[in-house]
Amino acid sequence: MARISVYQEETNRTYLVIAEIATAVMDRVDGAPSDGDVDYYLRISTTIPKADGSSWPTYIVRKLTDNPTGYSTPSTFTELVNQYIAYFVTSSELTQSSSSSSSSSSSSSSLSSESSSSDSSESSSSDSSESSSSSSSSSISSESSSSSSSSSSSPG
C-alpha cells in the first residue's frame, strides 16, 4: 500500500492519498455484466476534502486509462498516481503551498478475508455514474459517496 502525505501549510494540516491493490468479483466490468471472474485492481482514496467539504469517492483503477479527466493517458503507475494526487489537490483547491511526501507499507492478508471485506463496498463498474457530483465529470470509475465512507481503505 502506498500512502502519500499532502501537507497544507496555511492550515497546518496533513492529508493522505492512499493507493492499494485489491481484488474482488465485480458486478460490472467496463459497462458489461460480470462474468463472475475475480478481478484485480487499484483503489485510490484520499482524506482531502472537496472544495465543498464533502468526501471524495474511492476510485477504482483497472487499467492505465482509468485516470482523472483532463489528464493524458499515463504510461506508468507513477504517472497515474501523481495525476490522482494533482487531481485531488487542485480540485479541492489546496493548491497553495502544498507539498507531498510518500511512504509505503507492506502487509498481506488472505484472499478470502480480503474479498469478504471488499465485496460490500466495491460494486461499481468503470462506467459507474452513481458516485457524487465530482465523479460525474470524470471518466474514471468510483465508488459511491456512501460506500466510500465505509471503505476499508480509509486511513488507519
Binding site: 500500500m1 491493490i21 498481506s108 492478508s109 480480503e114
Partner: peptide, 8 residues
C-alpha cells in the same frame, strides 16, 4: 494492504 494469491 497486499494480496496473497494462493497456488495449489
Amino acid at each position: 494492504m497486499a494480496i496473497n494469491i494462493s497456488i495449489y
